[in-house]
C-alpha cells in the first residue's frame, strides 16, 4: 500500500484522535502526543502499527495526537487517513469481509 500524499483524519475533541499520514523515504516513522501517554502510550503505538501492518503500509510518516480515544477510534482514524492518502479501497475494512 503506497501512501501518496498527506492526509488527516479525526479531530482534537475529547475521546478522539487526529491522525496525519504522509509519504516517507522508507520505513515507518511514528510520532505520538497523548494526554494519557504514560498509561496508554505503548498500547496506542501498538494499535497504530498493527493497523498499518494490516493495511500493508510499509513506508509512511504517521503522527497521532490522542485525546483519550478508544482503540476502535484510533483504528478508524488510521484507516481513514490511509484511505484518504492512498485512494485504495482495500483500506475500507468492511470491503475485506466480502466472501
Amino acid at each position: 500500500m503506497e501512501i501518496k500524499s498527506e492526509a488527516t483524519a479525526g479531530t482534537l475533541e475529547s475521546s478522539d484522535a487526529q491522525v496525519t499520514i504522509e509519504p516517507s523515504d522508507g520505513g515507518i516513522y511514528f510520532e505520538l502526543s497523548s494526554s494519557v501517554m504514560n498509561q496508554y502510550g505503548r498500547q496506542i503505538r501498538n494499535v497504530v502499527l498493527e493497523t498499518l501492518k494490516n493495511l500493508e503500509v510499509e513506508s509512511a510518516k504517521i503522527k497521532v495526537v490522542d485525546r483519550g480515544a478508544l482503540d476502535s477510534t484510533i483504528k478508524a482514524r488510521v484507516e481513514c487517513a490511509v484511505f484518504r492518502s492512498s485512494g485504495w479501497e482495500g483500506a475500507i475494512p468492511w470491503r475485506g469481509l466480502v466472501k
Binding site: 483524519a9 478508544l70 478508524a76 482514524r77 481513514c80 484511505f83 484518504r84 475500507i92 475494512p93 468492511w94
Partner: peptide
C-alpha cells in the same frame, strides 16, 4: 462522510 463510516464500523464492532 467517509470518516464517519470508518468510525461507525469500528465502534459497532468493538463497543
Amino acid at each position: 462522510k467517509d470518516a464517519a463510516r470508518f468510525s461507525l464500523y469500528n465502534n459497532l464492532r468493538s463497543i
